[in-house]
């Protein structure tokens, strides 16, 4: 079982007086859904970029399956807040992008792309242009495109951040469905407290100045959804409200109320 591991990672950007993140350790196993939350400037995205291989840590080690992470790779596909899709391609061609890079024949990659589009519930949108899609549909295409790389880990940088509240709620269950179906480990950054609780198997709370871990929560609401419990029932559970209060306290700990 490969693990994505950050070991006492410090991120220090050139020209900055203080590090963005100091000595943070994380471990994401396959089947885990780890969510990073915290106030602005706590270094959530920096950590995700280290895992992606887009940012090199100043100190500490980032490894996947024991091998050091030195560059981005399709074993860790990233989905960004602004979908970062390619508008000159159709939805299907976007999903098939990584297969095209690998030289997969056109008919096979189109078939695979259609399967993935079906998985993200965009069955009939294959021929659509990117600008014809709504924000939620675009993120679905982005997720399908990432899954086409057959990654071991999905790195999600506020993937639902730009969506309206209703779309966002629907996309949360989609994410859980994909996580279950694709059997990947997920490392996700979010600002949403409820979103973190709905999705995560583990929530890592970070605080700024420089970014460090203040608390880690093991949660089970996402697994309960995966086991078949309806999302509304989970959210109505008093345990959910209690966990939300705890998490909120942890995020704003040390800050005047």
């Amino acid at each position: 079982m490969p693990h994505l591991t950050l070991d006492k990672v410090t991120v220090h950007y050139d020209g900055q007086p203080a590090p963005a993140v100091e000595r943070v350790s994380l471990d994401v196993g396959k089947g885990d859904f780890v969510v990073l939350v915290g106030r602005s400037g706590c270094g959530k995205t920096s950590l995700l970029n280290v895992a992606a291989g887009l940012v090199e840590p100043a100190r500490g080690r980032a490894t996947i399956g024991g091998r050091p992470i030195t560059a981005p790779g399709p074993d860790r596909a990233v989905v960004f807040q602004n979908d970062a899709l390619f508008p000159w391609l159709t939805a299907r061609e976007n999903v098939a992008f990584t297969l095209r890079l690998r030289g997969v024949p056109a008919d096979r990659r189109a078939r695979r792309a259609d399967e993935l589009l079906k998985l993200v519930k965009l069955d009939n949108a294959g021929d659509k242009r990117i600008w014809e899609l709504s924000g939620g549909m675009r993120q679905r295409v982005g997720l399908a495109r990432a899954l086409a790389a057959e990654p071991e880990f999905l790195l999600l940088d506020e993937p639902l951040g730009a969506l309206d509240a209703l779309t966002r709620e629907r996309m949360q269950t989609t994410l859980l469905d994909l996580w279950t179906a694709a059997q990947v480990g997920v490392l996700m950054v979010t600002h949403g407290i409820e979103e973190a609780l709905v999705l995560a198997t583990r929530i890592v709370v970070l605080a700024p100045g420089p970014g460090h871990v203040v608390r880690t929560f093991e949660t089970h609401f996402g697994r309960r959804y995966a086991a078949g419990e309806p999302i509304r029932a989970i959210k109505a559970d008093p345990a959910f409200a209690a966990a939300r209060a705890d998490l909120t306290d942890a995020i704003f700990e040390g800050e005047a109320a």
């Binding site: 992606a52 887009l54 981005p72 790779g73 399709p74 390619f86 992008f97 890079l101 495109r145 990432a146």
Partner: peptide, 22 residues
């Protein structure tokens, strides 16, 4: 956009492929 390039790289694109395809 930086994100577009990063997305392509994380999908396995080499430097040359990023230039040509993105």
């Amino acid at each position: 956009s930086r994100e577009r390039i990063d997305a392509a790289r994380s999908l396995g694109a080499t430097r040359g492929q990023v230039v040509r395809h993105v």
